[in-house]
Design a protein around this nucleic acid. Structure first.
Lengths: 348, 348
DNA sequence: ATGAAAGCGCTAACAT
DNA sequence: ATGTTAGCGCTTTCAT
């Protein structure tokens, strides 16, 4: 029951009484092989339980491996799962296999993982950059022709293709929706760290919407959280202000969960909410949650298509480009709760 | 700007004027190297942008790769994301990297993916089996000492370790909770296909709970769906029965989403619900959703620990074993809605 | 239709 | 402290 050595091509060849090359031919179907030999080889392969060693093959063939490496900050976040699904759908018929690993939002681990993928010679590298990560070390790889695409957030220290949501416009639309329904004190609960690209962009959209409406920016209404629990805390702190907000804008899905949970817990049905990124049960909430929906599958498909084009030698655009996938405001009700003024008018 | 050949160990060696082995020593830190040589080598590595080819290394060293392959049916399902997170936490300090790929619940793709992992000589293979998949082809691999662990559902055609939730007991508890609150007509909306392990087990728990309460099993109350939309349909069909259920038991998280969405849409607050597997916004619903919570992180950790023990030569149990991770009933309110009889009593 | 030899990039084992 | 040789498992090249 000891761990037996795995059979190799040579073992199969010996078993049948042919050369290793012949076995190789049968398995890869290149050269001509007599039907009889083929059968014998196949039989021996099955009997010995031979499994070709792809590493050995790749090393000889020299080309990249038929895998594509994807680094995400969090395996549990369905947003990245959906992105991965979109990538897979696109690369599958090319015979490429998507391998996904987590950086846990840690720049060091992100780097480790990218190095591991590169050392295993993936055909394409895709990265959702962690906050604070630098990507200049990928320059030499790009020079060798390896397609590198950054997802959800652009790269730092390297010029490369990236695919992102229309964060600024999306956040603007969401906040404008609140303003259109009479809200003038609107709290913003964003991601952490504050330097995170998506947070900056979405905050920028928030501010531009306020500006257009002639509403002065009040820094005390801008807070952050890096998880659901923190977002719940941020929510109760905002509501405890002397001049509290009548509406909240959630900077991402995690934050939205925290806000909704906290409002539910404290029975504050009078607070309007719009969230960036859709949530599974958004429609079933009362009121149903209005969101700025992203399209993660489309982000994945776009990223994959971009990378495949590069792989096929797309030199049409030497310069790298940033592709923006549009968001869509889905009005479900939670943004329409009357602001105090209107509420007063209604009850009069 | 053409795709330059990647530099190899030999290139670095030539650049510095030492042998390849010396460069290897510097990079892997085994043999002794003079500080001066080390510096020169490191400089050349940086300058040439050399990246070791791990495939070449692995093939020479002979051992398995420092990766662990995980096959899941759906990258977008947070349940599997959480499982993956638990695995990663456990294997990280062993220097193992988790690589995850999707079978899309398709036995053929599951097999393709496992073959790819095996051909790349992963140290450990973990699989969430697709419905209908057979795993007898993995026997020879287990014989070579490769740890194989099945997650969420046991393997077919091979004896191997597996880690699953307490599906039967969990479903039993959930249904018993409904019965305790006066319900006697309880609909079951399960996964598809009907042969799926988790569905069978949970249905079994449902039936045993009914049996214990002396409630006759009514086949017309048992339905299935394979996605959220189908679950919504199943829900409205159940409610349209001549003698409709007063409570519903959701067989998994997707189904729960469909049920909750449909009840919300049709404003049926009078229907009690208990779901198998927790949902992010469960607490924020009205009423809050009572669930039989699984512990996906713990499932992942357990699976990883089991595999690592095998990797370390745990022959203490030659026979494979199935480890059950307990579920926990979290009562939040949705299971307590009065059944018609009690409702009548209350309003009298 | 098949085989022999060489070599992919790297490291183990033995030099020196 | 460093170099040489051989070889991991496979495929390419060139024979036969």
């Amino acid at each position: 029951m000891a761990a037996n050595r795995r059979p190799t091509l040579a073992d199969v060849a010996r078993e049948v009484g042919v050369s290793a090359k012949t076995v190789s031919r049968v398995l890869n179907g290149d050269g001509p092989v007599s039907p009889r030999t083929r059968e014998q080889v196949l039989a021996a392969v099955a009997e010995l339980g031979f499994q070709p060693n792809l590493m050995a093959r790749n090393i000889r063939v020299g080309g990249p491996d038929t895998t594509i490496g994807l680094v995400v900050p969090d395996l549990g976040n369905p947003f990245f799962g959906a992105v991965a699904g979109g990538i897979e759908d696109t690369v599958r018929d090319r015979g490429l296999t998507l391998l996904m690993g987590s950086s846990a939002e840690d720049p060091d681990r992100e780097r480790d993982l990218t190095e591991k993928f590169l050392a295993r010679r993936v055909s394409i590298l895709m990265v959702v950059p962690s906050a604070g990560a630098d990507h200049s070390h990928l320059r030499t790889h790009r020079a060798t022709g390896l397609p590198v695409v950054f997802i959800d957030r652009p790269a730092v220290g390297i010029s490369a293709d990236s695919v992102v949501s229309s964060n600024r416009a999306g956040a603007h639309d969401g906040v404008a929706h609140l303003i259109a329904h009479g809200h003038r004190r609107i709290g913003f609960v964003g991601d952490l760290p504050a330097k995170l690209y998506t947070r900056r962009e979405r905050l920028s959209g928030y501010r531009s919407a306020l500006r257009e409406a002639g509403i002065a920016h009040d820094r005390s209404l801008v807070t952050s959280a890096h998880d659901q629990h923190g977002a719940a805390d941020a929510t109760s702190q905002l509501l405890a202000l002397a001049d509290p907000p009548t509406a909240l804008f959630a900077g991402n899905n995690m934050v939205a969960l925290g806000i909704v949970a906290e409002l539910s817990r404290s029975k504050r049905k009078d607070i309007a909410v719009v969230a960036f990124d859709d949530l599974p049960l958004a429609e079933a909430l009362e009121p149903a949650l209005t969101v700025v929906a992203q399209d993660p599958e489309e982000i994945g498909r776009t990223a994959a298509a971009t990378a495949l084009a590069r792989l096929d030698g797309d030199r049409s655009r030497t310069r790298s480009r940033t592709i923006t996938v549009p968001t869509r405001l889905i009005v479900r009700g939670s943004g329409e709760r009357p602001a105090p003024a209107m509420q007063g008018a209604a009850s009069n």
